[in-house]
Structures are given as structure tokens and as C-alpha cells.
């Protein structure tokens, strides 16, 4: 049984199939990359998994249990947390309260005690201790993205969906971000990440899924994907790259 699995996942926006008959799976402990050109349906697939949207038709399973059709807050409490492509922090709340909300409302059957130790630990984990009491709106994009990560981790997820966490970061921030993903994996959290930054994708993912026009066109290890003719065609729009190389 896979940790997270989708079968024939489809959704239409008007006449457009944003995600079309996609089968996917994620196993425990993996870092799975989700790549594809703009408009390929990556974020839509995240929205389907986290229940911001419902697949029609198609089904999504988490630990063998069907989760499509559930409310987003229930999905989160089951153990699937996410971040957003366009950051959605609670901008008027300080960093610590952003994370605290995840800790207070996220995981099921939480002990009624003090969540402060774990909140502080997570803020330290993502490197925001110095700005813990600053309102989120006053922080840079890179920091806000880390708030989202800490907030998501505070819900004690088994699967973390990272939507373009590395877009718009400078090289230093990018390296830090890659380190962070590896550290998240070491915490025992399975990661699915949408990313355009190839250095990051190739560097940390165990497996990559490629979407194009809503369809899954390739799947494999970073090495396989880097050598795949279809993927190169989709990204570069030429057909003779592969043959030239050969």
C-alpha cells in the first residue's frame, strides 16, 4: 500500500482538462518532485490532494483510505499539510502565532497541553527564531515561505506538499532551502515538491513525476528524467536534442 495514491485523477475547468487521468503514488520517506511547464496542472494536482478542489472523476487515497471529497481541514488533520505557490501567511499575526495555529488545530487527538515548546522548536528548525515575534507581513518572501513550512510542519503531517518553495530565492537562500527539505525528510516527513529550479529538483528528489497539459508524461529517477526524450521535448520544444547527444 502506498502512503498517498491517486487513481485516474481528473478535473476540468470549463472545457479545459487541467488535470487529466493522472495516476500517481508517493511512498513513505520519499522526496517526490512534480515538474512540468507552466499551466501543466501541478498546483491543480496539489489542490486536488489537499481538497481545495475535488477530482471528477478520480479518487485519491491516503494510507489506503479514500480522502477525495473530504474538507480541507480534515485532510490536514489526517496528516497532509501544504504550502502555497503564492505565499499565504497570516500576515497580521506574528511568526509564532502563524506556527501556533498549525500546532493547535492541525493534528488530531492533540494533548491539551502547552504547544509552545514544539512551536519554538519548529521556528528554530526553519531558522526564524530571531523574528519569532515579528508580524509575518514585515518579513521577506524567503522568510514567509519558511513560515509556511513551519506552520505546515506544526500540524504534524506525514506528507508535506511544497509548492514552489524555491521560486524567487537568491542562491544563498536556495541552498538553505534545499538543506531544509533534506532536514524535513530526515524528520520522517514524506515530501512532494513542485519546483522549477532544476538544481533543487535534481539534487534532492528520489523520484520525479512530469506533467504536461494535465497529463502525466514521464516518471522516474532524476537521472532517467534528465535523459528522457519526451521531457526534453516538452521543456525545450525541440526534437533533435536527444539524437544529437546520441
Amino acid at each position: 500500500m502506498h502512503l498517498l495514491e491517486g487513481k485516474g485523477v481528473t478535473i476540468h475547468f470549463g472545457g479545459l482538462a487541467a488535470v487529466s487521468d493522472v495516476d500517481f503514488y508517493v511512498d513513505k520517506g520519499e522526496v517526490v518532485g512534480l515538474i512540468g511547464p507552466n499551466g501543466a496542472g501541478k498546483t491543480t494536482l496539489f489542490n486536488l490532494i489537499s481538497a481545495a478542489l475535488q477530482p471528477k472523476p478520480g479518487e485519491i487515497f491516503f494510507k489506503g483510505k479514500k480522502i477525495s471529497g473530504m474538507a480541507p481541514f480534515k485532510i490536514c488533520r489526517l496528516g497532509i499539510a501544504r504550502t502555497f505557490q503564492t505565499v499565504k501567511v497570516f500576515s497580521n499575526l506574528p511568526v509564532i502565532d502563524n506556527v501556533r495555529i498549525g500546532a493547535l488545530f492541525g493534528a488530531q487527538k492533540r494533548l491539551k497541553g502547552n504547544v509552545n515548546p514544539e512551536v519554538n522548536e519548529l521556528i528554530k528548525f526553519v531558522g526564524l527564531t530571531e523574528v519569532a515575534n515579528t508580524p509575518a507581513r514585515d518579513l521577506t518572501l524567503a522568510y514567509q515561505k519558511r513560515i509556511e513550512v513551519a506552520r505546515a510542519l506544526a500540524t504534524k503531517p506525514e506528507v508535506l506538499l511544497l509548492d514552489e518553495m524555491m521560486a524567487g530565492l537568491n542562491p544563498t537562500e536556495l541552498t538553505e532551502s534545499m538543506e531544509l527539505v533534506k532536514k524535513i525528510q530526515q524528520r520522517g516527513v514524506t515530501v512532494v515538491m513542485i519546483e522549477h529550479v532544476m538544481r533543487a529538483i535534481m539534487g534532492i528528489c528520489d523520484r520525479i513525476i512530469v506533467l504536461d497539459y494535465g497529463k502525466k508524461i514521464a516518471e522516474g529517477t532524476p537521472k532517467e528524467i534528465a535523459g528522457s526524450k519526451t521531457v526534453i521535448e516538452v521543456y525545450l520544444g525541440v526534437t533533435n536534442v536527444g539524437s544529437k547527444k546520441a
Partner: peptide, 16 residues
């Protein structure tokens, strides 16, 4: 307050 700031994010953080 989290709802006032960003309702979608609140829902995905486990808030009913």
C-alpha cells in the same frame, strides 16, 4: 484572526 488574514490557508492548517 487567521480566517480574517487568509481563510484558505487557515482551512489547510486544520482550522474548521
Amino acid at each position: 484572526r487567521s480566517i480574517g488574514d487568509n481563510e484558505e490557508a487557515a482551512a489547510h492548517t486544520g482550522v474548521n
